[in-house]
């Protein structure tokens, strides 16, 4: 169903945004439960994700979201924060 008004649209998009970010954090936490992924830090520089984690994360995201993240995008800088991962998912077709 289409949203009834502009403000509703904004609210709806916001809800989706929160939902996607939350999902990403849940997946990251499942992958590395010893870290808090709600922190405002660079996940790669902080050692929270290594290259093998990135591979497992891509596999999980591909599977759960029914996409295939472009291999050229599988570089550490795209996985340094929940926002970067979200942008990557959007680039790869997740709405």
């Amino acid at each position: 169903m289409k949203p009834a008004c502009k403000s509703c649209t904004k609210e709806h998009e916001k809800t989706n945004y929160l939902h996607m970010k939350q999902q990403i954090i849940e997946i990251l936490t499942e992958l590395r439960p010893e870290f808090d992924f709600t922190q405002d830090v660079d996940f790669i520089e902080a050692g929270m994700l290594d290259s093998f984690d990135v591979i497992m994360l891509v596999n999980t995201l591909d599977e759960k979201l029914g996409i295939s993240i472009d291999g050229m995008d599988v570089v550490p800088e795209n996985f340094s924060s929940a926002e970067k991962i979200e942008a990557l998912l959007k680039k790869n077709g997740v709405k």
Binding site: I55, V58, N59, S68, D70, G71, M72, V74
Partner: peptide, 10 residues
């Protein structure tokens, strides 16, 4: 396997 699957998709 991961690299090959990504190549096939691309």
């Amino acid at each position: 396997k991961f690299m090959l699957n990504k190549l096939a998709d691309k």
